[in-house]
């Protein structure tokens, strides 16, 4: 899910950087004092999740957890993912510092979209499980599309790239869906405020 240094063209890098700065600004503005602790812990989870490698399919895929972050944090997922990716770039050499903006946007924007799509469905216990699964899987699917788009804008042939990236990420979509589903249903039992509250 991380795009390496030296693959993307300058306009894509700058565009991704600008969007990430805007998203992070809004995210920090909306992040209130009580939720900073949770944001930090989820950031750590995201930071570590990328090391859980799933040896299925042709490429190299791993857990991302952007759906979970998006659903719980809302706009705050932007600063959370930015910090986690920065540290992954520094410590693990995943991605890179120049592509940080693009990578952050590719993972955070789908997460945010899932927040708006899935959040209303979490209030009712009936739809909660399905919504959690859909959120986790959709976030990965959209992130794969964003990534394919960034690659395509720098190179050519969106459809071929998109196909490849989405197919490579199909197993992880399933796994993330299940992980997110269990996490959300569990959180709904333990701290219902977090899940059903209108504005987290």
């Amino acid at each position: 899910m991380h795009i390496s240094e030296g693959v993307l063209s300058a306009p894509v890098l700058i565009g991704g950087g600008v969007l990430t700065v805007i998203g992070t600004g809004i995210g920090l503005h909306r992040l209130d004092y009580d939720r900073i602790m949770n944001t930090a812990i989820l950031t750590s989870a995201f930071f570590v999740a990328s090391l859980v490698h799933v040896p299925i399919g042709p490429g190299s895929i791993h857990l991302v957890l952007n759906g979970l972050l998006g659903i719980i944090l809302g706009w705050a997922c932007f600063p959370a993912i930015l910090v986690a990716l920065l540290l992954q770039a520094v410590f693990f050499q995943f991605g890179g510092l120049l592509v940080l903006g693009v990578n952050t946007f590719n993972m955070a924007a789908p997460a945010l979209l899932c927040y708006y799509l899935v959040r209303p469905l979490l209030a009712r216990p009936k739809t909660r499980g399905v919504a959690g699964f859909a959120g986790g899987a959709l976030a990965i699917f959209l992130a794969a599309l964003c990534m394919a788009l960034s690659l395509a804008l720098s190179d050519s042939g969106f459809l071929a790239t998109a196909k490849l990236v989405v197919i490579a990420n199909l197993p992880i979509m399933l796994i993330e869906g299940i992980v997110t589903m269990f996490a959300i249903t569990f959180l709904a039992k333990v701290t219902p405020d977090l899940i059903t509250g209108s504005r987290p």
Binding site: S4, L42, A49, L51, V52, H53, Q93, V190
Partner: peptide, 20 residues
């Protein structure tokens, strides 16, 4: 809960991932 989740991730993490 989140701390426990995180701890599980750290412990079970195999040292492999996402770089060529």
């Amino acid at each position: 809960f989140l701390s426990i989740l995180l701890l599980c991730l750290v412990i079970t993490t195999p040292v492999n991932a996402h770089k060529v």
